[in-house]
């Protein structure tokens, strides 16, 4: 693995991380996962269904404890953060839609400011500014007074990203932000994420099944396979043939030249 300690700052770092479920029957989903995510990077997490992408994301966002190894967020152990401190460092976009579809877009995005507001949740001038900026960045300003049940899936996903942006955290983690979307919106959302990472210098980590798109757009990728988890930039991963072992060879083949998967007939 290429270690790069240049001028950029590390945001999220794992060392020999094991993930899974402890309890009566301990299940290890992934072991020996090590990577380091820098400021302003867009990172894609790929792997087959059921390989543990969601478990990894849940572990990295503190929703589930790690089995072994360490997770450093901005140089501090993840488990050492209080829930409020963590909310100021890390925001998430989940696969679940907001429970209440009766919220307006404005209300939903404003909820992202909760880690900074008082007990009543009143928005200060700077809170309102952050909300406006998030709406502008995601091109959702025209939707601001619409209710969530009036939005399409693509619009709703942009609004969910706007909420995470309003939370103004150095790290944003998205769980499969492109599911249920058509090709245009998948490309649109991933382009938007790349743009956000570059313009706001935030670290954006997302899991996806769009490996082709991720190879073209991301700075680094985390590739989860049955035994090993690889981390590098997409070109390096292609060269070393890391995508070859992603899916069973008899069904799907990876073409190194084009960076695409093809179905074997």
């Amino acid at each position: 693995m290429v270690q790069d300690y240049s001028h950029r700052h590390s945001v999220l770092q794992t060392k020999n991380l094991s993930i899974g479920y402890s309890g009566r029957q301990s299940v290890t989903v992934g072991a020996d996962i090590s990577f380091e995510l820098q400021e302003g990077e867009l990172i894609g997490l790929v792997g087959a269904n059921g390989i543990g992408k969601s478990t990894l994301l849940r572990t990295l966002t503190g929703m589930q404890p790690e089995l072994n190894g360490s997770i450093l967020l901005k140089g501090k152990e993840l488990s050492q953060y209080s829930s409020l401190e963590l909310a100021q460092q890390l925001s998430v976009v989940l696969t679940e839609a907001p429970s209440s579809k009766n919220l307006t877009v404005m209300e939903l995005v404003s909820l992202g400011r909760q880690p900074y507001t008082n007990w009543m949740g009143a928005l200060s001038t700077s809170d309102k500014k952050a909300v406006q900026q998030a709406l502008i960045n995601t091109e959702t300003k025209t939707l601001a007074h619409r209710k969530c049940f009036e939005l399409s899936d693509g619009q709703l996903q942009r609004v969910a990203i706007a909420r995470a942006l309003a939370q103004d955290t150095p790290l944003i983690v998205l769980d499969e932000p492109t599911t249920h979307l058509d090709l245009y919106h998948r490309a649109y959302i991933l382009k938007l994420l790349r743009q956000l990472a570059k313009e706001t210098d935030k670290t954006v980590l997302f899991s996806t099944h769009e490996i082709d798109l991720a190879i073209q757009l991301t700075d680094k990728m985390i590739v989860m396979t049955e035994d090993v988890t690889y981390f590098s930039d997409p070109c390096d991963l292609i060269e070393k043939g890391r995508f070859d072992s992603l899916f069973p060879k008899e069904t799907i083949d990876f073409d190194k030249q084009t960076g695409r998967f093809s179905i074997k007939k």
Binding site: A87, S91, L94, P98, W119
Partner: peptide
């Protein structure tokens, strides 16, 4: 009334509420 902020966060669902610092 004291819980109104948390109740607002809960409108997004439990996991979102947690991610915004609600215990």
């Amino acid at each position: 009334l004291y819980q109104s902020k948390s109740l607002n966060a809960l409108l997004l669902g439990e996991n979102y509420a947690k991610s915004m610092g609600i215990r």
